[in-house]
Computed example of a mutant assay.
Amino acid sequence: MASLIALFPNVIEVLQYVEEDGDNGFSRTQATGILSYLKTFDFVMYLHLMFHILQVTDLLSRALQKKDQDIVEAISLIRGTKQLLQTFRESGLDPLLKKMYSFCQANGIASLDMAEYYKKNGRRRTNITNRHYYEFDIFNTVVDMQLQEFGDRFSEVGTELLKNIAALSPCDSFSWFNVSDLLELSKFYPYDFDCMEMIALEKELNMYYVIVCQDERFADLSGIAELARLMVDTKKHKTYPLVYRLLKLALVLPVATATVERCFSAMKIMKTDLRNKIGDEFLNVALICTIEKEALLDVTSDDVVSQFQKMKTRRTQL
């Protein structure tokens, strides 16, 4: 979108060329339709609105795609992005309109007076003003959709879970360590911690914190993965088995969540309208091939032919 905003005059020029000198009537007609829409105030509104939303969420999106995920930083980015979206929802329309008017003036697009009555296709629609339409029917609707989607993806329970996991972080000499948060974390796993273990966990956490803070080997760790490895190397996973169990659960959670997300994403790709009657067995095989692409790189064509031949007796060898 940044490129479209920056190169908008060039895009218009190319479309005008296609409109006049296109190879066929279809391309010329298509260029005419696109040109007419690009020069509308509605398009300018959606362009700048979505561009701002993508700017706000870009940093969080990039952070969540990193392989070495920092949970503490992810939590702060989630909360910060939520706050910025909410602030934009409450007071972002006027600055956005200012940018839109400037863009329209620079590119020869007719601007609208927000105090006038809203017209659709040249006809007055209702007694609402342009300001009312663009604020409530477009601006608020789009931003509310983003906030709702954001809330579904990063619910309060999920954010609280991440905050509790962050209490295990050894960064900055265990500065995020908090016994209360870790006890709350254990409550998310009632099948892994019974009542007696919950009581023992609090005492074990207090002792664990005192010991690791005094041990120089635990001073410069960068994440819970390194902490788990060092606990095994120093045999502390046997001394503090409940703490180590929490570590394992914290390490498994992102992997399990990412695996489920990958499966649903792959299912959307595989089960299209043309494959709406796909069988379960074939769907499973297709999903495995889609999800485990890296593992399948080691499988040769000869391996596939050999496996196919072994499935049952055939008249001739392939």
Rank of each mutant, 00 (worst) to 15 (best):
E156P: 08
D58C: 10
K98F: 08
Q65E: 03
F51P: 03
D144E: 13
L54F: 13
N140S: 04
L96Q: 10
G92W: 03
Y117H: 11
I78C: 05
K66E: 13
Q69C: 01
L64C: 05
D70S: 09
H52I: 12
Q148W: 05
M145Q: 10
D58F: 10
Q65P: 05
A63M: 07
L77R: 03
D113C: 04
K66D: 09
A106G: 07
F150A: 04
G108D: 12
K99Q: 15
G92E: 05
S155T: 06
T141K: 11
K82D: 00
R124E: 13
Y134L: 09
G108F: 06
P95V: 08
F103Y: 05
S111G: 09
I71G: 00
D144S: 12
L84Q: 15
E160M: 06
N127P: 05
A115D: 14
S155I: 00
E73C: 05
Q65M: 02
K82P: 00
Q86E: 09
G108N: 14
R89Y: 11
D152R: 03
K99G: 11
M145A: 06
S111V: 12
F51W: 14
N130H: 08
L85T: 02
T141A: 12
T141H: 11
Y117E: 09
S76M: 04
I78M: 05
V157T: 12
L97A: 13
V72R: 04
G158F: 06
Q83Y: 07
K67S: 04
L162G: 01
Q146A: 05
T141N: 06
H132K: 10
F88G: 07
A74N: 04
L93E: 02
Q55W: 11
Q146M: 06
V157H: 01
T129H: 05
D68Q: 09
T81R: 02
T141C: 06
L84Y: 10
I53L: 15
S102F: 15
N107G: 06
L54G: 07
F136H: 15
A110G: 13
D113P: 00
T129M: 01
M50W: 14
A63N: 06
I53C: 10
I78R: 02
R89Q: 10
D137C: 13
R131G: 02
D152Y: 01
L60V: 06
E156G: 11
D152P: 00
K119M: 05
D144H: 08
I53V: 14
D68E: 10
V56R: 04
Q105H: 15
N130K: 04
T159F: 00
L64Y: 01
L77K: 03
Q146L: 04
P95A: 07
G108T: 11
D137Y: 13
G151D: 08
Q105N: 15
